[in-house]
């Protein structure tokens, strides 16, 4: 167990080194062999983090975006001209980085100049599409699909309400947002057909597709809720699968990179590993002091990093 000393807001892997992003100032690098490294990057709160597997991108309330690799080398990607909060970051193909501050979204690819766009209201979430440089920008009343290299105005996928985190399915056919209401909203990208996933007891704060994209694993309920995405219609007209019912809510999910296994974190600090095939459960971590707020697998699927709001953190070696 690692004492992070602060709430852990994200857990990512850079090779076999876990990057635990803390709520304030620092990223904790935990290699599988050797000493951990605490890197103080931001002069304040860290509001968002993302990874492409090579670097971890962090955005802070100091208006800065950093990119940090497994060795602990950090690069300042940008400082917002008005020192606005960097609310969201995303990592794209070939080292592309996206971030947002208030209504503005930015993308920088390689060594190029950042491109920016202003959307109708504050950005609620950002995601790169799996292929090509296309960015989904979630905001009030929908998502803007932005091609930063094109002159055309972004395509707007509308749905009334406030949209937060956004993600694409691995094959790029579906896009899902977590809403302010306890529900997810989905679009089939090709024809903007809607899909609504509701029934949660709380806002969905964590969701991820399983390897291969058959299932969307979600938090926000007192059990792991999995929406089927096998067919071309996604979950429309279908019931979700539910596993691992608990007295407390699921607060974080992370899907195994190769198998249909989901790491599930709960509000009491428990982490379970759930196999979708048969619902088999393995205890990853006993209950602790605060809700699980961060879960992440390494690319091989042998290491699982976790972190809680109370600052508990660790790496489970399943290899």
């Amino acid at each position: 167990m690692i004492a992070a000393g602060a709430p852990v807001v994200a857990a990512h892997f850079l090779g076999r080194t876990a990057a635990l992003v803390l709520g304030e100032e620092a990223v904790l690098l935990v290699p599988d062999k050797g000493d951990e490294q605490r890197l103080t990057l931001h002069g304040g709160g860290i509001l968002s983090a993302a990874t492409d597997g090579v670097s971890v991108i962090t955005g802070g309330d100091d208006g800065k975006v950093f990119s940090t690799d497994a060795k602990g080398e950090s690069r300042l990607v940008t400082t917002d001209a008005k020192r606005r909060w960097i609310d969201h970051v995303a990592a794209g193909p070939d080292g592309a980085v996206a971030w947002s501050a208030a209504k503005s979204a930015f993308v920088v690819a390689g060594k190029g100049e950042p491109r920016s766009i202003e959307v109708q209201s504050t950005v609620g979430g950002l995601a790169f599409a799996p292929k090509g440089v296309r960015v989904a920008i979630a905001h009030y009343n929908g998502v803007s699909m932005w091609f930063p290299n094109a002159q055309a105005a972004p395509e707007l996928l509308e749905w009334k309400g406030s949209h937060h985190d956004v993600a694409f399915s691995p094959n790029g056919q579906f896009m899902v947002t977590a809403m302010q209401e306890p529900a997810l909203h989905g679009w089939r990208v090709v024809d903007a057909k809607h899909m609504r996933m509701s029934g949660y007891s709380a806002r969905v704060r964590s969701f991820a597709w399983t390897a291969g994209g058959k299932w969307l694993a979600t938090s926000g309920s007192e059990q792991l809720v999995l929406w089927p995405f096998q067919g071309k219609d996604g979950p429309m007209g279908k019931q979700p699968k539910m596993f691992a019912a608990f007295a407390v809510r699921v607060t974080a999910v992370a899907c195994h990179p190769k198998q249909e296994v989901v790491a599930v974190g709960y509000a009491d600090g428990t982490v379970l590993l759930v196999r979708i095939d048969d619902g088999a459960e393995v205890l990853g971590k006993k209950p602790g002091e605060g809700p699980v707020t961060a879960l992440g697998w390494d690319a091989a699927g042998t290491l699982l990093a976790f972190g809680t709001e109370a600052g508990e953190a660790g790496v489970i070696d399943l290899g």
């Binding site: 807001v9 709520g23 709160g45 209201s121 009343n141 009334k160 309400g161 406030s162 302010q180």
Partner: peptide, 25 residues
């Protein structure tokens, strides 16, 4: 913005939700 929860006068400040969550860091 209006919440989609069926109450006709239920409007909330989305930016406040974002900022307070950020401040809680």
């Amino acid at each position: 913005f209006e919440m989609n929860n069926g109450c006709i006068c239920c409007t909330v400040r989305g930016d406040l939700i974002r900022i307070i969550e950020g401040l809680m860091r």
